[in-house]
Design a binder for these strands. Structure first.
Lengths: 125, 125
DNA sequence: CCTTTGTTCTATAAATGGTAGAACAAAATT
DNA sequence: AATTTTGTTCTACCATTTATAGAACAAAGG
């Protein structure tokens, strides 16, 4: 999986990393059961600090996407059940981007097609 | 339009305000041509600092959603043409939320229905 | 004429983001 | 068994961001 960090971005490095790992899973490049590199190895690979990678991993664990097993590694979790709480968090994430797309002039149909197109880039389960 | 600011949130106050104004426009509660309150009046109303509202307004202007006319007010803009650059910014905004929803276990169909449902809360143009 | 307006400036305080180094105990490897 | 690697934890430092505060200004509005 190729990670591309932009130091100049206004998005924090650890967030860029978190998002790109999630996108890698969505695309099927890495799958549940697979291990992520160690924080030290990944940090050296990306040219960032160990603590920055560590923060990203803990963010992913908080979201329920990976499981950090001390002295063993960060393993991608299997998908658990969809709770109402999780669904509301996801909806809260969608809210501002949908409203902005609509206000900036995209039609409902265009937005739906954009979302469908992006979903087609992801690997079916 | 009702604005609800959560001081305890990890989302900056000016971002919360920006998003809720955008959502208000999307719902049709405020329309192009309408004026937003003055930074001082809005700040007093919300119980936040004048500069915080000012920052939100400038963020909205940067996005092309309002026009700040000095000594006159902040007027909601009409929708301009959809450029390829704007579409790519919107797509970049969708990317992480779609990937996360998918990885957290929502099916493509569920995601599409969630988006459609949220779009139906918005006022047709 | 007076108030309101957005802008601009300085200032302060807390939180965030990123890097850095060191130390530790446990797991994995050799 | 000895060594390396691992995630964790701690302190430390620095720049930026977030939020508030007050003051001053010129221009628009009533």
């Amino acid at each position: 999986m190729i990670i591309h960090i932009e130091a100049e971005s206004d998005i924090p490095i650890y967030t860029q990393l978190t998002n790109q790992i999630i996108e890698g899973i969505a695309r099927g490049e890495i799958a549940p059961g697979d291990s992520l590199p160690s924080v030290r190895a990944f940090a050296a690979d990306l040219g960032v600090n160990m603590h920055t990678v560590n923060k990203s991993y803990h963010e992913l664990e908080k979201k329920g996407i990976i499981k950090i097993v001390p002295k063993s590694g960060a393993i991608i979790s299997s998908i658990e059940q969809m709770t109402e709480e999780k669904k509301q968090l996801i909806e809260a994430g969608f809210k501002p981007v949908i409203a902005e797309a609509f206000v900036l002039g995209m039609s409902k149909k265009e937005i739906e097609e954009l979302v469908s197109g992006m979903l087609n880039q992801m690997k079916e389960r």
